[in-house]
Design a protein around this nucleic acid. Structure first.
Length: 155
DNA sequence: GCCAACGTTGGC
DNA sequence: GCCAACGTTGGC
């Protein structure tokens, strides 16, 4: 059963254009250091699931594309790499704390769906992204919400 | 740059 | 186990 997710990224760190220019338009979603999001990455996100790719902490926060999960949760090896900014001494290869998935670009939206537009859309009222204080960088999205966002993008 | 909301840390 | 202090997120 296909599930739906939203993943946040700061475009200055990794943007939809970076994903597009990645080999096979695929990347590992490393660096998530929040337990709730970790649990989703490790336990719930499966190959074939659909992802809304969201730009946060920028001029125009918006869903800018969609992606497909091409590899389900596996240990985030960046946590073992002392030179990585995602290094975490408490995580080890035999007992990993952090997990990641691989995603592949599905499509870049010609018309990004802005945070503002989503707030104005009655049908999206319940969306996790729009709840006050919601900071989860990986969050579940209902199929209906996913479809609504795509419709707003004219897809 | 500000600041509200949230998560984590660590002293007790 | 409580909770104050601190760090981070992210919209504005």
């Amino acid at each position: 059963m296909t599930k739906y997710w939203l993943m946040k990224t700061e475009p200055t760190t990794f943007s939809i254009d970076d994903l597009e220019s990645s080999p096979d338009q695929t990347t590992c979603w490393e660096g998530v250091r929040n337990y709730q999001a970790r649990n989703l990455l490790r336990d719930d996100i499966q190959e074939g699931d659909q992802v809304l790719f969201y730009h946060s902490a920028c001029k125009e926060p918006a869903v800018v594309g969609t992606a497909t999960v091409v590899r389900s949760g596996y240990p985030d090896s960046h946590a073992f790499d002392r030179r990585s900014k995602y290094f975490d001494a408490k995580s080890s290869a035999d007992k990993p704390t952090w997990y990641m998935v691989d995603i592949q670009l599905q499509q870049k939206l010609d018309t990004p769906v802005t945070l503002k537009a989503m707030r104005d859309r009655a049908g999206l009222k319940g969306m996790a992204l729009l709840q006050k204080g919601s900071r989860l960088s990986v969050q579940p999205v209902k199929k209906k919400e996913f479809d609504t966002v795509l419709k707003m993008a004219g897809v």
